[in-house]
Design a protein around this nucleic acid. Structure first.
Lengths: 144, 144
DNA sequence: CCGATTCAGTCAGAAAGACTGACCATCTCG
DNA sequence: CGAGATGGTCAGTCTTTCTGACTGAATCGG
């Protein structure tokens, strides 16, 4: 389990480290009612709003689960639901006031952690990492 | 949310892609009773056995949850528990017969996926990716 | 070598997250 | 228009995880 660690774990470790940091920081800033599951959905809301079903696909959960999480996010003031003008069946989920403020905070924390990583790896390798991962995304991300 | 994707998501995407592939393959090979949560614990068992509490820490869950998952793994024949000769309070969790066979299968699938990634990225960049991630592990993995 | 503390693990109860299946309303297309 | 696809919800269940309380074993200071 130690020497040539499997690539999956190698990817997961920094991911979790970053996620934990963001949660701690968010909680410290008063956004202590966000759960990881809610955040994973919230994170994927497009600037002009997304449909629950889209969010479900991108987060890799069922539409029922997504609907449930959006309910919670709505009750906590992070998002709002508006009717989709283009489709009477659909309702758009949009980032609300409180949600926008939490985005600001987490953006700051992510930047901080990325700065630490850059300090450890060096500017060049950090850029390389991002480039390679972006490239890898083409064959590992079904939603573009 | 689209262009300069946050590094966390960039790490998460390939991780999940790999994990899904391993699960599909495992299920196809008859190991269809493994759940993701069980697998995440199972994956961290050291060659000579680990204590439930260690597994809990490394998997980032409470020791109660780890104990519960180990129970399930034991019932399904993936692991066995033996008393720890060095500490009368502890019991070591070890990979059992069936568990070892599932490890073989998943190793094959991981190799397959890594080969695809190498084909996409090129040998050099794939090696770079692993090197950078291994390096990053030093500051993102609390357990060595 | 003995009491206090720490540590490994379990039990009990509850909540979160996710799933399947069934269902309704609306949209789209032949 | 009517059939099928799509967006979303409701109901019920299972898995995973957590908190808190507890037992038994080890360890450490005096």
């Amino acid at each position: 389990m130690t020497e040539p660690l499997n690539t999956g774990l190698l990817l997961f470790l920094p991911y979790r480290a970053l996620e934990s940091r963001v949660f701690e920081g968010l909680a410290a800033a008063g956004f202590d009612d966000l759960t990881p599951a809610q955040a994973r959905v919230f994170q994927r809301i497009a600037p002009d709003g997304s449909r629950p079903t889209e969010l479900a696909e991108q987060a890799g959960i069922t539409k029922q689960s997504a609907g449930f999480l959006v309910d919670q996010l709505e009750r906590a003031g992070y998002v709002e639901r508006v009717p989709d003008p283009a489709d009477g069946r659909a309702r758009l989920v949009r980032v609300a006031e409180r949600g926008a403020r939490s985005v600001e905070v987490s953006r700051g924390i992510v930047a901080e952690v990325e700065a630490e990583w850059t300090a450890h790896l060096g500017v060049r390798r950090m850029a390389q990492l991002r480039r390679i991962l972006t490239d890898l995304r083409e064959i590992t991300d079904p939603w573009r």
